[in-house]
């Protein structure tokens, strides 16, 4: 297993886009090859830098959504309609094109497979990306640590990695997946659309007594609400790790 590169200098590296796929109508999975990549821990992110022809440059952070795989990894990028960087990454960047990035960054919001505590993952929308890296790493390493994913999306069309999650929920022993739809539930769903609340987190997450590691990723308001509920349910705040955006 690759060690997190948290010491030493994080240099800008050349990343070549190997392949790009649609994850949803508004999100792309971008697979990069990065010579010299030191490897990552699931949950870490990278900084991407784009430079215009006149030298103007911008940086953004994106979570890695793949398991460690040599010098290759996947970023999942949500297209923000008026965004400065994501429309270029989603709609212009093509296989063979090169950009700069550096990482991996972040030594806190990571799952280490040696830790045997059960894991509750809670994702809001595109916040699934770093949690997907954890689910995929668990499978790649044959870990038996029990995982429960609670994933809140607006509509069935917004589910990232829908086919893969359906398959893993069947095949990955010890992985439970529970979807919550906030605006429109799938046809025939037993539950109407609703916000993620205490009852769902209590029913579909691990109880506080099991001292699980809890990872929550999503928009700020979502993360605030969910992490407050976990604390109210008796979870040790130090075991509730959060990553927020927006």
């Amino acid at each position: 297993m690759a060690r997190a590169a948290v010491s030493g200098r994080l240099t800008w590296r050349v990343a070549e886009l190997a392949e790009a796929t649609d994850i949803t109508k508004s999100a792309r999975g971008l697979v990069f090859d990065v010579p010299g990549w030191p490897g990552h821990l699931p949950g870490q992110h990278v900084d991407v830098r784009l430079t215009a022809e006149d030298g103007y440059s911008v940086q953004r952070s994106y979570s890695i959504s793949s398991a460690p795989d040599g010098e290759r990894f996947e970023l999942s990028v949500q297209r923000v309609a008026d965004g400065e960087v994501s429309p270029y990454l989603c709609d212009v960047l093509s296989p063979g094109d090169r950009i700069e990035l550096r990482g991996p960054v972040g030594g806190w919001f990571v799952w280490r497979s040696a830790d045997q505590a059960p894991v509750t993952l809670v994702a809001g929308g595109s916040g699934i990306a770093p949690l997907m890296a954890m689910i995929r790493t668990r499978a790649a390493e044959g870990s038996r640590v029990p995982f429960r994913l609670i994933y809140s999306v607006r509509t069935p069309e917004d589910v990232y990695y829908a086919d893969e999650l359906r398959r893993r929920a069947r095949e990955d022993a010890g992985l439970d997946v529970h979807l919550v739809y906030t605006r429109q539930a799938p046809e025939g769903s037993p539950e109407p659309p609703k916000r993620l609340g205490l009852a769902t987190l209590n029913t579909h997450g691990w109880p506080a007594d099991f001292a699980p590691n809890v990872f929550v990723c999503g928009p700020t308001g979502f993360v605030e609400t969910v992490s407050d509920i976990f604390v109210a349910l008796g979870h040790d705040p130090r075991r509730v790790r959060t990553e927020r955006f927006g």
Binding site: R9, T11, W12, R13, V14, V34, P35, G36, R49, L50, T51, A52, E53, G55, Y56, S57, V58, E84, Y88, V92, L93, D97, R98, I99, E100
Partner: peptide, 21 residues
């Protein structure tokens, strides 16, 4: 920085054609 790997781009950024920002 001396000793940086060859893949480092610290001295020469990659330009993304069509990116204006």
């Amino acid at each position: 920085a001396f000793g940086a790997p060859l893949s480092s781009t610290d001295t020469m950024p990659i330009v993304s054609p069509g990116f204006t920002g």
